[in-house]
Design a binder for these strands. Structure first.
Length: 822
RNA sequence: GCCGCUGUGGUGAAAUUGGUAUACACGCAAGACUUAAAAUCUUGUGCUCUCAAAAAGCGUGUGGGUUCGACCCCCGCCAGCGGCACCA
């Protein structure tokens, strides 16, 4: 449309004046459909193509479902806490609150321009005290259930951001945000026991309809391994009489997935952080050993995570001077210290079976340690293992665990890669953790009636060099009374991580203004679960897992409806749009496409429709302006066609059935494809229909013209609205009498028009198509006649003359295959 | 190393899930309109052979298999993408 800006303004205003169009109804008898797109972080640079693409995908579906008569909840909000805003505020010496307000205003406007049909009456903002009151409330519940605890622990410290990072935020030993190398630092942190929910998070996936990729990613991340814990007695030297003289620990416990190889365990390895090591360092038993150990520990502490993994090929280690006793054969085996064993996994100690484990083998070779084979390579049966000999792996595991349990020195157990979730951030722009430290009572949660604990305004937002949150400098905030004993106490000054606010936002949309509960049970019962959750692959693990964890925790509390154990039914990943150069868009490459700019040039509908036409919704695609021009051409031709039709009304011709057949096929296909988010082919159907209808040169009745416009409406809301208005009113009615196309009823395919009178049957010889045959639809099940006619075809005669027809296969209405032989 | 995914024209991609491979679009070529260009319209467009057409052959990364028939199912290989990774 040449005057697209005028039209966009007109209808934007109209929609603004009719907010009810897109509002979800809490008291509807219609089917509900909760369609969620990941809410954005409102950065200063505005809505980017990725947002526009993902939201358009959700919007098309929401519009489609609304027209199908469903009660659609399609909300939007802001995940607005976070470092970029804080950093920007520091740099510009402004309040993060003000910056956030500006950014969200900008985002909202851009979204409205792009015609996203969000229900703005339900907008949420994670930085709003009315919102984060409940984020804090959830934390208190975690604390009360023993799932949040304070712990002095080595954390990943980013020296540039001056912030502690969760394991998930460290990529290749570097800070996910700024790329600086991460070091380790001991800080007292709030930690949330997500590991308690590891099994539930795996099992719960069965309740969902996530794509396999997402399920697998989550399962991998949790990383459950089944095996056994085994206790080994510790001795200080091979000559000493029994227990260790230099350590207070009697037993060394290990986790192994292969207890069946216990007879092959020839040494033990413990992590440098293992408590046995600190015990050793405190006592001074053997001067030279002592020194070796100290040197080794020092070296490994200096290594960052990056080095520890990069240098993984080369094993290092030091002998501890201690021995363990293998419980199955009472053999004394040496205990080594090495940083290839991780303190944070299992028990921080392993039994080494160098004959059957690559890493153990490497270590044994380097330090000249013994290797014993316990499996016969040919038969895969246990050898050299006394009572396990001759068994296969499964039998041996079962038997040895039974043996160990009876002796009380071992048991079946599972171990997980998933770690507890470090929940403290030493920054300003986050939710204050609602805890108070009392010298008498310890950590006490803020009284729920005192929530929210509002972020106080501070002069300086910079994190302090000692790593403490800027809040720690505000005396009026820090000094408080213990809610339990009333004595003097201090507030926690750390804030929560970004994930905290986004864990449960989808629940708040359901009941955004509720001040007594986070959302009413009744409304949650109606709206939960989210039917479709559209988001990026980068959130398939962390956000989705945290969010599922918090939901499951709330479920255990009885806060969310019992009927719904999982928050999201279906998860869809949207694809990634690359720059025209096939590279990831970035300012430095100068290949950034700004949706606003393109929309300004060609119109919003062109941009929306092009993005949906580029390729499958979940794939990676490069921006291509030529293809975009193709879409523009289509929309122009569509408009011309409709206008022509409007002017021709009244001159209907008799061959109308052809129009109906095209239209109804298109209805059926587009409906099916929209349902599956196959927008690229849905749009292709639309194009095909327009091509065919244009060729027919027939005039159509109003009803059919409207059908065509309705099919377009989810993709091109402005164009559709303008054209629908023209057909509906022939420009005579006033705008206020007009009801939007976006709440018009979605067309249903009429099966009588899905049938074509004549169908083409392919004729194949030995599976290769050689000819075609046109038959009447009604006669398609008359195999004999069709086969006879096929044999009569000139081309076919050439192939079958002088040959023996071995078989005649007829697939009704599709093809005939003659199998011939010489 | 483990897990998941992908491989189809010059390009982005379709294929009703075992039944006419390449829909739709881009690009390209020729033509129309124009003084000219852009825009628009028409026609053609998998490859080989042919001035052209017909006919034929080849053709969904690759080698096999199952089947009347395979982009689709099975086995092996190659290439690429994504996630996890010294996890015992």
């Amino acid at each position: 449309m040449e005057n697209f800006k005028e039209i966009e303004n007109k209808w934007r205003k109209f929609w603004e004046e009719h907010p009810g169009l897109y509002q979800a109804d809490n008291n509807s008898k219609k089917n509900k459909k909760y369609i969620l797109v990941e809410f954005p972080y409102p950065s200063g640079s505005g809505l980017h193509v990725g947002h526009a693409f993902s939201f358009t995908g959700g919007d098309v579906y929401a519009r489609f479902k609304r027209m199908q008569g469903e009660n659609v909840l399609f909300p939007m909000g802001w995940d607005a806490f976070g470092l970029p805003t804080e950093n920007y505020a520091i740099k510009m010496k402004r309040k993060p609150q003000d910056v956030t307000k500006e950014n969200t205003d900008m985002f909202r406007k851009q979204m409205k321009d792009l015609a996203f049909s969000f229900d703005w009456s339900r907008e949420v903002n994670t930085t709003d005290p009315h919102y984060y009151k409940w984020t804090q409330w959830i934390f208190i519940q975690l604390f009360n259930k023993g799932l949040a605890y304070k712990k002095e622990m080595p954390i990943n410290w980013c020296p540039s951001c001056k912030i502690g990072l969760a394991n998930e935020e460290v990529v290749d030993g570097k800070c996910e945000r700024c790329g600086s190398e991460v070091s380790r630092r001991n800080i007292s942190q709030w930690v949330v026991k997500i590991t308690e929910y590891a099994d539930k998070l795996i099992e719960g996936l069965e309740e969902t309809n996530f794509i396999e990729k997402v399920k697998q990613a989550q399962i991998n991340w949790i990383g459950k391994s089944e095996g056994a814990k085994i206790k080994f007695k510790v001795k200080s030297s091979s000559s000493s009489r029994d227990v260790a003289r230099y350590v207070s620990t009697d037993y060394l416990e290990v986790f192994t997935t292969r207890p069946d190889t216990l007879f092959g365990a020839t040494f033990m390895v413990i992590a440098p952080e293992h408590q046995l090591v600190s015990q050793l360092l405190e006592t001074h038993h053997d001067a030279s050993l002592q020194k070796n150990i100290e040197t080794y520990i020092k070296q490994s502490k200096k290594k960052s995570d990056l080095e520890r993994t990069e240098l993984s090929k080369d094993k290092t280690g030091v002998f501890s001077g201690l021995y363990a006793i293998n419980p199955v054969n009472n053999k004394e085996i040496p205990i080594w210290i090495s940083d290839f064993v991780l303190a944070s996994y299992g028990t921080g100690a392993i039994m080494s079976v160098p004959a059957h484990d690559e890493r153990d083998e490497e270590f044994a070779k380097k330090f000249g340690l013994e290797m014993i084979k316990v499996y016969d390579e040919k038969s895969n049966k246990v050898i050299n293992s006394d009572f396990l000999n001759g068994l296969n792996k499964e039998e041996a595991i079962k038997k040895v665990i039974k043996w160990l349990s009876e002796k009380g020195i071992g048991e079946r157990t599972a171990s997980y890669h998933l770690r507890d979730w470090i929940f403290s951030r030493q920054h300003y722009w986050g939710e204050p953790i609602p805890m108070i430290n009392c010298p008498k009572c310890g950590w006490v949660p803020v009284a729920e009636s005192d929530l929210p604990i509002v972020l106080p305004e501070v002069e300086v937002y910079e994190p302090t060099d000692d790593g403490k949150s800027p809040l720690s400098k505000i005396e009026s905030f820090v000094k408080t009374k213990c809610p339990k004993c009333g004595g003097k106490a201090e507030r926690e000054t750390d804030t929560m991580p970004n994930w905290a606010g986004s864990d449960w936002y989808f629940l708040r949309y359901i009941d955004p203004d509720n001040d007594t509960v986070l959302a009413s049970q009744e409304l949650m019962k109606y709206w939960c679960p989210v039917d479709v959750y559209v988001g990026g692959d980068e959130h398939n693990v962390l956000h989705l897992l945290y969010s599922r964890f918090i939901y499951k925790f709330l479920w255990d509390l009885g806060v969310v409806p019992k009927e719904q154990p999982e928050p999201y039914y279906k998860r869809l990943s949207h694809g990634v749009i690359l720059g025209p150069d096939n590279q990831r868009m970035s300012k430095s490459k100068g290949n950034v496409i700004v949706p606003e700019v393109v929309a300004d040039k060609y119109g919003v509908d062109v941009v929306r429709m092009y993005m949906m036409f580029m390729g499958p919704f979940d794939s990676t695609m490069a921006w291509n302006e030529n293809t975009l021009m193709g879409v523009k051409r289509f929309l122009d031709r569509f408009e011309q066609f409709i206008k022509l039709q409007i002017n021709q009304v009244g001159s209907e011709t008799a061959k109308n059935r052809e129009v109906k057949v095209i239209l109804n096929k298109t209805i059926k296909n587009i409906t099916d494809m929209n349902e599956q988010f196959k927008y690229n082919t849905a749009i292709a159907q639309m194009m095909e229909a327009l091509n065919k209808l244009t060729d027919l040169r027939l005039s159509m009745v109003d009803e059919d013209i409207k059908t065509l416009i309705k099919l377009l409406a989810p993709f091109a809301p402005y164009t559709a609205e303008e054209l629908y208005f023209m057909v509906e009113t022939h420009d005579r009615a006033y705008l206020h009498e007009y009801a939007s196309v976006h709440i018009a009823e979605w067309p249903k395919a009429d099966s009588q028009y899905l049938i074509e009178d004549k169908i083409i049957v392919a004729i194949a010889i030995n599976g290769k198509v050689r000819d075609q045959l046109e038959i009447n639809f009604a006669k398609q099940n008359d195999k004999d006649e069709i086969v006879e006619r096929a044999k009569g075809q000139e081309k076919i005669k050439k192939w079958i003359n002088g040959k023996v027809i071995v078989k005649e296969i007829y697939i009704e209405g599709k093809m005939i295959n003659f199998v011939i032989k010489d």
